[in-house]
């Protein structure tokens, strides 16, 4: 590729696919579904990220890592985080879900759609299938976990604890 080549959106997406989530590094920010939009034009790149959780302490790290990676592609890089649309766990890609399972995480359940009831709680049944042995015979031990985005489960079949990426 020559130095004069026009930077394409695709090259930006490929670069973003190399940026890991700091809390679950086997997943990239693209597989996590955090990238809302990529704009490329005239020596500049602008990327919009959707924060996975409102209080996610990793957001600033992610933003900086994305900016540093893209600065190799364009002289002017802008990385914005936005709540203009909510990130939901449904945005995690099939590849991302596969990688979660391989790292010992149950992927989030599909979100229920439609109007949220007033005191909506997450559905406890069916419980997440065990990422190690695949058994559906599991118990939620704790709705909360070591980071904001994880819950803790116990597999009654293979008798191991595991985590699920929260369904939000």
């Amino acid at each position: 590729m020559s130095g004069q080549a026009v930077l394409g959106e695709r090259a930006v997406w490929e670069a973003l696919a190399e940026v890991p989530d700091p809390e679950i590094p086997t997943l990239s920010v693209v597989e996590l579904g955090m990238v809302r939009r990529v704009e490329v034009g005239d020596g500049r790149v602008r990327v919009e990220l959707l924060p996975t959780f409102v209080g996610c302490p990793a957001l600033e790290v992610i933003r900086r890592t994305v900016a540093e990676r893209l600065e190799r592609l364009a002289p002017v890089v802008e990385v914005d985080a936005t709540f203009a649309e909510p990130w939901t766990s449904d945005r995690i890609t099939p590849e991302g879900r596969r990688k979660l399972r391989e790292s010992g995480f149950a992927p989030p359940a599909p979100r229920t759609t439609g109007e949220q009831p007033l005191f909506a709680t997450i559905p406890v049944r069916p419980a997440a299938a065990c990422p190690y042995c695949g058994s559906p015979d599991t118990t939620m031990e704790n709705a909360f976990g070591p980071t904001l985005c994880r819950s803790i489960f116990w597999c009654n079949a293979c008798r191991q604890p595991f985590e699920q990426f929260k369904t939000v």
């Binding site: 924060p51 959780f53 409102v54 709540f83 909510p86 990130w87 939901t88 949220q116 005191f119 909506a120 709680t121 997450i122 406890v124 709705a143 909360f144 904001l148 819950s151 929260k166 939000v168």
Partner: peptide
């Protein structure tokens, strides 16, 4: 975004 997180608090 907050409402989705609050479903865990309510549970």
């Amino acid at each position: 975004k907050m409402r989705r997180e609050e479903t865990y608090h309510l549970l």
